[in-house]
Computed example of a mutant assay.
Amino acid sequence: MDYFIQNITELIKSLYVDERCVKCNNICCAKLFQQNFKNWTSGNNDIDKIIQDTQLLDHSQYARYALEWIPFDRFCNIKCIVKDEFGRVYIANWIDGRINNLDNKNKNWIRKDQNMLVVLKYFDYSKDGILRLIKKITGFYKVYGVSQDSETKNYIMVQDDTCEKCNYICNVTHFQRNFKNWTSGNDDIDRLIHNTQLSSHRNYQISKALEWIPYDRLYDIKWIAKDKVYRANWIDGYINKWDNENQNWKRKDQNILP
């Protein structure tokens, strides 16, 4: 009987140890990532390996540096904001949010910032080119993972919306976060406004940024010349700078007559 109990104890112990990471002798992020390898694939062995390598290097409880494969249907409100030398750039809301830390009790991830705004960088290059770019970008910016457009099959880099030029949250980031809240109803006009805003990193550049102004924010509209030229008072006034305390734009000259 004692021999039987000893064998059962050893079996239970071996199963428990098997769940632990060989390197840190604990149930760490790397171990949970590894156990999940069978549940996803990018469809490209090289991309899978890059993601898995970052995951196997993360022995913490917080998974701060690991990439993950993010199914495309976990994004919503996808909107194109610019096309640069690498391809198309979109913003979207990530439904699940980023991994925050390991939930040892439930053997799962605790996530934060559900529906957070992320930047989606589409790549028109070959898969080898994508791999080189992934390695380059992950050294400088917070990259959450990789995805793939379900229609075009283009691979996508999913990263935070920190300004790549300034390497911090600048005016461009604040403008960008608001793109989903307005539209002129015309893609070309939207793109023109976007481009001026995406060039306004510093406060002294804000004066060159256009914005979409709802017609009901104007009053006392009067015709002054031919060719449909009018004048009006602008209720809100023009953007002066970002107000960190209230997380909104600080404006000047309310009820201004442009």
Rank of each mutant, 00 (worst) to 15 (best):
N171V: 12
K49I: 08
R177P: 04
I134E: 04
L117K: 09
Y144I: 06
D58V: 06
D58M: 07
D113H: 11
R177I: 03
F75C: 09
N106D: 12
W182R: 05
K49N: 12
Q61I: 11
R88C: 02
H59N: 12
H174P: 02
H174Q: 09
T173G: 05
I70M: 09
D58K: 07
N93E: 08
Q52H: 07
C80W: 05
G129E: 03
K142P: 01
R88L: 02
F123G: 02
K79F: 01
K112S: 00
L67C: 04
N77C: 14
S147N: 03
R98N: 13
D149A: 08
H59L: 14
L102M: 14
V172A: 11
W109T: 05
Q55D: 11
D124N: 10
F123H: 05
S126L: 06
I110G: 00
A66F: 08
K153W: 15
R88S: 03
D161G: 07
W109C: 03
I50H: 03
I50F: 04
K136T: 10
K180Q: 08
D58S: 09
N101A: 05
V172K: 10
K112C: 00
C170P: 04
T54E: 07
K180S: 10
V146W: 00
K105S: 11
D58T: 06
Q176G: 13
N77R: 14
Y168E: 04
K142Y: 07
Q61W: 05
N106G: 06
V172D: 03
T152K: 15
I50N: 03
Y125A: 05
N154K: 14
L133C: 04
D53P: 03
Y90F: 11
Q148M: 04
I81H: 08
R88F: 01
A63G: 13
Y141Q: 09
R74V: 00
D128V: 07
D160W: 00
W69E: 08
K153P: 15
V172S: 09
C80S: 11
F86I: 13
C170Y: 01
F75G: 08
N178M: 13
N181G: 08
L102C: 14
N167S: 07
I47P: 01
W94Y: 14
C170T: 03
R111W: 15
Y90G: 05
D48M: 07
M116F: 01
G87S: 01
F175W: 10
R98S: 12
I110S: 03
Y141V: 12
N108E: 12
I50C: 05
S126W: 05
D149I: 01
E68N: 14
F72T: 06
H59E: 08
T173P: 06
Q55M: 12
Y62G: 08
V172I: 14
L133A: 04
F123Q: 01
I91V: 06
W109Q: 03
V118E: 04
K136V: 11
N154M: 12
C163H: 01
K83H: 07
L56N: 10
F86Q: 10
D160G: 09
G145I: 00
N93W: 02
V146A: 08
N108Q: 13
W69R: 10
T183R: 03
H59Y: 14
Q52T: 07
I51G: 00
N77W: 13
K112I: 01
I169E: 10
I130W: 01
S126G: 09
S147Y: 00
A63W: 00
Q55Y: 13
K142E: 06
D58W: 00
N104M: 15
I95W: 00
D58N: 11
Y144H: 10
N115S: 02
